[in-house]
Structures are given as structure tokens and as C-alpha cells.
Amino acid sequence: SSCPGKSSWPHLVGVGGSVAKAIIERQNPNVKAVILEEGTPVTKDFRCNRVRIWVNKRGLVVSPPRIG
């Protein structure tokens, strides 16, 4: 992607959502990480300053967080 800084975090799958949020925002200060339960409807727009963290009912990351 053409967004500045780190853009994906595949190693965070299985980690707690709040831990993942802290790591992502520390590694790329340009983004705001948002924790969402899988299945939550979201907009389809692409934004360089957003990372969606998809978690299951136990709050664990279920897919690699990435910019968008």
C-alpha cells in the first residue's frame, strides 16, 4: 500500500485485541486501531489512518490486522 509506516501485523493473530491495539499504534503512530467483533458491519472505504482489529467473542484477534 502507499500508506506510510508498517501496514500489516500477521503475528498478532491469537493475541488479545487491546494488546494488539497498543502494539499497532506504537509501531505505526500514523494509525488509530479499532477493535471490532467479527461479523460487525463496516464501511468499505480505505483509509491510511485506520487499522481494524477483528476479534472473536473471547476478544482474541482472528485475522491479520492491516491498514484500511
Rank of each mutant, 00 (worst) to 15 (best):
S18W: 11
L60Y: 11
V15C: 10
I53Y: 03
E38I: 14
I53F: 03
P4C: 15
R58W: 10
I53T: 02
S7K: 12
V55E: 01
D45L: 05
R50E: 15
V34D: 14
V15D: 04
S1W: 05
T43S: 14
C48A: 14
E37Y: 06
P10Y: 05
G14E: 00
G5V: 15
I23S: 04
K57W: 04
G14V: 00
S7I: 08
P41I: 11
H11F: 13
N49P: 05
A22Q: 10
G16C: 15
V13M: 05
R50M: 14
P65S: 00
G59Q: 08
S2D: 15
C3T: 15
N28A: 07
F46H: 10
V15N: 04
V42T: 14
A22N: 13
A33H: 01
W9R: 02
P4E: 09
R26A: 11
C3R: 12
P64E: 09
V61R: 00
E25V: 03
R58T: 11
G59Y: 01
P65I: 00
R52T: 12
N28P: 00
G5K: 14
V15M: 15
S2A: 10
I35Y: 03
P65L: 03
I67P: 04
G68P: 07
S8V: 15
G68D: 12
V51D: 04
Q27E: 15
I67R: 13
N28L: 09
A22T: 13
P41C: 07
I23F: 11
R50V: 15
P64A: 09
K32H: 06
R50C: 15
V15Y: 11
P64L: 02
F46M: 11
P10D: 07
E37Q: 14
F46L: 09
R47T: 14
K32T: 12
V31I: 14
V62P: 00
K6C: 15
T43C: 07
T43P: 13
K44D: 12
T43L: 08
G17Y: 02
S1T: 14
W54A: 01
R58M: 12
E38M: 09
R58S: 13
C3G: 11
N28F: 08
G5I: 14
V31T: 05
A33M: 00
W54Q: 05
P41H: 09
S2L: 12
R66E: 13
G59A: 02
F46A: 09
W9P: 01
R26E: 14
E25H: 03
P41R: 12
R47G: 15
D45M: 06
T40W: 04
G39S: 04
G5E: 15
V19S: 09
T43E: 14
P65W: 01
P10W: 04
L36A: 05
E25K: 00
V19N: 08
G16S: 13
A20K: 01
G68F: 04
V61P: 02
P64D: 04
V42H: 11
N30L: 12
S8M: 14
Q27T: 06
S63D: 09
H11T: 10
W54H: 07
S18M: 11
K44N: 08
I53P: 01
S2T: 14
N49V: 02
I35A: 05
V55M: 01
P41M: 10
K44T: 12
I53A: 02
D45F: 03
E25W: 01
F46Q: 10
S7E: 14
I23V: 12
P65K: 01
R26D: 07
G5C: 05
N56H: 00
E38F: 04
G39A: 04
L36D: 00
L12R: 01
S7D: 14
L12C: 06
N49F: 02
K44W: 05
G5T: 15
K32M: 10
K44G: 12
A33K: 00
E25A: 02
R52I: 15
G59E: 06
P64W: 00
V42S: 08
V62I: 10
Q27V: 07
V51W: 02
R52S: 07
V61G: 03
W9F: 08
K32S: 09
R58E: 10
A22C: 08
N49K: 04
S18T: 15
G17C: 04
N28I: 07
A20Y: 02
S7F: 11
V19Q: 13
R58F: 14
I24P: 02
R47S: 14
W9G: 02
V31C: 08
V62Y: 00
S63H: 11
I24K: 00
K57E: 13
I23Q: 04
N49G: 08
H11N: 15
S8F: 13
K21Y: 02
C3N: 15
T40P: 01
A20F: 01
I67Q: 09
G17T: 01
W9L: 06
I24V: 07
R26G: 13
V55F: 01
K21P: 02
V15I: 13
C3P: 15
V34P: 06
E37L: 12
E38W: 08
K21C: 04
P64S: 06
S1M: 15
L60S: 08
Q27C: 06
A22H: 10
R50T: 15
N28D: 09
A20V: 05
K21A: 10
N28V: 09
C48M: 12
P41S: 11
P65A: 01
N49R: 05
S7Q: 13
C3Q: 13
S18C: 12
G16A: 15
G5W: 12
S18Q: 15
S63N: 09
V55C: 07
R66K: 12
V51K: 00
R26I: 06
N30Q: 11
G14Y: 03
R50P: 04
I35N: 11
V34G: 01
V61I: 04
G16E: 15
G5F: 13
I67N: 07
N56S: 07
P29V: 06
K6A: 15
V13P: 01
L36N: 04
V42E: 08
A20P: 01
I24W: 01
V62N: 07
W9A: 03
V34S: 10
C48P: 13
L60W: 06
I24T: 04
V61H: 01
K6D: 14
G17P: 02
L12W: 04
G68W: 06
L60D: 10
V13F: 03
A33F: 01
V31D: 00
L36M: 09
K57L: 05
I24M: 00
V19D: 11
W54L: 06
N30A: 14
P29T: 09
T40F: 04
E25P: 02
V51P: 02
P64R: 02
R52C: 12
P41T: 11
T40A: 09
V19L: 10
A22Y: 08
I23H: 08
S1V: 14
I35M: 05
V31N: 04
K44Q: 13
G39C: 03
S18K: 08
S8N: 14
L12Y: 03
E37R: 11
S8D: 14
P4H: 08
L12I: 00
V31M: 09
S2F: 15
A33N: 03
V62F: 01
T40S: 09
V34L: 07
S1Q: 10
Q27F: 07
N30F: 11
S1A: 12
P29R: 09
V62D: 04
R26T: 09
G14D: 00
S7G: 15
R58V: 10
P65V: 00
C48I: 09
